[in-house]
Simulated assay, not measured.
Amino acid sequence: MEFEMTLLLAFAPFIAFVVIERLVSVPAGLTAGAIVAAALLVRDVATPGRHIKLLEIGTVLLFGALTVYALTNDVRWSIAAVRLRVDAGLMLIVLASIALRQPFTLQYARETVGREHWGSTDFVHINYVISAAWAVAFAALVLADIAMAYVPALPHSTGVIATVVALIAAVKFTAWYPEQRAATRT
C-alpha cells in the first residue's frame, strides 16, 4: 500500500493542473503543475533516503515547457487540447523510462522495499509490467483527449469517464499484480 500511495503522490502535479485549470485558467493550471512538480523534486533532493526520479524530472520539464510556451505565446488551447499535450507528455515519459531500461515504478518501489530485493529479476519484471500498464492507461487518456478535442459533439462526461476508468484500472493493477505474481511463485 505504501508503494501505491508514493506512486500516486507522484501524480500530484497532474491533479493540481486539472483542478487549477478548471477553476482559474489553462496557464494557471500549467503553472500549478510546474510548481507542484518542482516541490516534489526539491523534496526528494532534501529528504535523506529519497532520490530524484525520472518521472519527476520529466514532469518538471513537461509542465515548465508548457507553462513558458503558454505564457509567452497567445495560445488558445481548449481544455481538451491542453490535456492532450499533458497526457501525451506523461505517456512519453513513462515509455521513455521503459526504453531507458529504468521503468518509472522501479524508482518508487525501491523506496518501499529492502535493498536485497532490488536486483531480483522478479522485482524488476514486476516493475516493467506495472510501468507498461500505466503507459496503457495514459494511452487511453490520450485517446480520450483526442476524442474530446476533435469530436466536440461527444459529451464531456465521455472523456471524464474514460479517464477515471483508465486511472482506477492502473491503480488497482499496481496493487494487484505484485500480490498475484507472489501467489503464483509459491
Rank of each mutant, 00 (worst) to 15 (best):
E2H: 14
E4A: 15
M5L: 15
T6H: 12
T6P: 00
T6N: 11
T6C: 07
L7P: 05
L8F: 12
L9D: 02
A10F: 02
P13K: 06
P13T: 03
F17K: 07
F17Y: 15
V19P: 02
R22G: 13
V24L: 12
V24K: 04
S25E: 00
S25K: 13
A28H: 04
L30E: 06
L30D: 08
L30W: 06
A32R: 06
G33T: 11
G33H: 04
I35E: 01
V36D: 05
A37F: 10
A38L: 15
L40Q: 15
L41T: 07
V42K: 09
V42W: 10
V45G: 00
V45C: 02
A46L: 14
T47D: 08
T47F: 09
K53S: 10
K53E: 14
K53V: 10
L54S: 14
G58A: 07
L62Y: 09
G64I: 11
G64R: 07
L66C: 06
V68E: 00
V68L: 15
Y69V: 05
L71M: 13
N73Q: 13
D74H: 13
I79G: 12
A81V: 07
L84T: 06
R85M: 15
V86K: 09
G89M: 03
L90C: 14
L90I: 11
L90H: 06
I93E: 06
V94Y: 04
S97L: 05
I98G: 13
A99P: 01
L100G: 08
L100M: 15
Q102S: 15
P103Q: 11
P103W: 07
P103I: 08
F104G: 08
F104V: 12
L106S: 04
L106A: 02
V113H: 12
G114H: 11
E116M: 09
E116Y: 08
H117E: 14
W118S: 09
G119V: 12
G119D: 12
H125F: 12
I126N: 14
N127V: 00
V129R: 13
A135L: 10
V142I: 03
A144N: 03
I146N: 04
I146K: 09
M148Q: 11
Y150N: 07
V151E: 02
P155Q: 05
P155A: 10
H156I: 10
V164Y: 01
V164N: 01
V164E: 01
A166K: 08
L167Y: 01
I168W: 01
A169W: 01
A170L: 05
F173H: 06
T174W: 02
T174Y: 02
A175F: 07
Y177V: 07
Y177G: 03
E179R: 15
A183C: 00
T184S: 13
